[in-house]
Design a protein around this nucleic acid. Structure first.
Lengths: 195, 195
DNA sequence: ATGCAGTGTCAACACCTGTAGACATAGTGT
DNA sequence: ACACTATGTCTACAGGTGTTGACACTGCAT
């Protein structure tokens, strides 16, 4: 889509092409599972030989690890968000256009896509725990935060599957009704009462 | 696990070995994604040559299709279940031991595991829609049943990921608290009010 | 016993995968 | 202009994939 015709001559900077490979790999892993993405696909996207990938990242698993970690920056929630607005914020974030997509949102999709690939499962579940669940649990506070954080992420993942992976039409629209439903789900997931 | 030592002499019945292959394949696809499962793994489990798999099922995709379709029997819900008990039923079903596991539950896990594998995605999303979403939406009734059914399945899938695929500890237990939380989530997903 | 169809095995194919080492080329400092 | 290092390409390997056609065996009917 981006560069089927011969590639523009790339400046010979190791760091630059490494980043280019990383970006191409991220785009691929965002759309397919770990094993269905070939190193040759990625290198072709960048316009570079396959060998470079193994050279710069050691192995396919190493590349995937770097992709998943990404720039390991900010938390999921803005630091000053009051507790009762978390659900609404998550619902809005979930439906935000891909253009200004949060990096954590993409990370979650990558994690989801390769979750059942044995070679990637360790990387993936560690990243989910360390980079998502634990920080998120810390920022929500309250009673049994791990359970509530995990449950919220379950809702997130499940809705992502239905929309992005399976393309189930009824929940694919970006309507106020869907947003309200999402918010309600997150509220339930975050609720501190056991009912 | 079952048959590493030389296999007991299998009676030469085509139908029987075809079913044996199907069963072995189902077990494999239940634990890994489409492309990480090799036909040789399956045939080795059965104690049979690889060639038989392609012979009996045409192709790997054909085998996978047969696995996903399974015995395409019963609906998800018991036919006489009152609407207000659906959520509780789903929660109990979700936590039911693997021993008496519903076949639909396993089908959903297989669907989930191979959802991001391009070669399987068509089979998988068709099966989800035709064998799960549509019948489920029909049996719940009420307003916008497709949305509510899809949302419920999103909760199911998300919790399955957290528990089975990612092994996230806090939600892995089979406690009354988790069951209550699940029931609350399903109630929210099935609710007819937009809040 | 003889033929015959059902059942399974063997060997090989063509292709693809990740990885590694030897080689070519470009860019830079001297 | 030279050499040197960084950067990228080429070739090849060892192993794995799904798939196919020819072959061997078994069991049953004649």
């Amino acid at each position: 889509m981006s560069s089927q015709p011969p590639h523009p001559p790339r400046p010979k900077s190791a760091e630059a092409t490494k980043q280019a490979i990383l970006a191409a790999a991220r785009k691929r892993f965002l759309e397919e599972s770990y094993e269905s993405v070939g190193l040759r696909d990625i290198s072709r996207d960048v316009g570079v030989d396959v060998a470079l990938v193994s050279r710069y990242f050691g192995s396919k698993e190493g590349l995937f690890r770097d992709v998943v970690r990404g720039t390991r920056k900010k938390d999921i929630l803005p630091p000053d968000l009051p507790a009762e607005e978390i659900a609404g914020y998550l619902a809005k974030l979930f439906l935000a256009e891909g253009d200004d997509a949060n990096e954590n949102v993409e990370r979650l999709l990558i994690i989801l896509r390769s979750a059942s690939s044995p070679a990637a499962s360790q990387v993936v579940s560690e990243a989910l725990r360390n980079d998502v669940l634990i920080p998120f649990a810390q920022s929500i506070g309250g009673k049994s935060p791990e359970v509530r954080a995990s449950t919220s992420m379950a809702v997130w993942m499940g809705m992502t599957i239905m929309r992005t992976v399976m393309a189930v039409k009824p929940v694919c629209e970006r309507s106020p009704e869907i947003e309200a439903r999402l918010r309600a789900l997150f509220e339930t997931a975050l609720s501190e009462t056991n009912r």
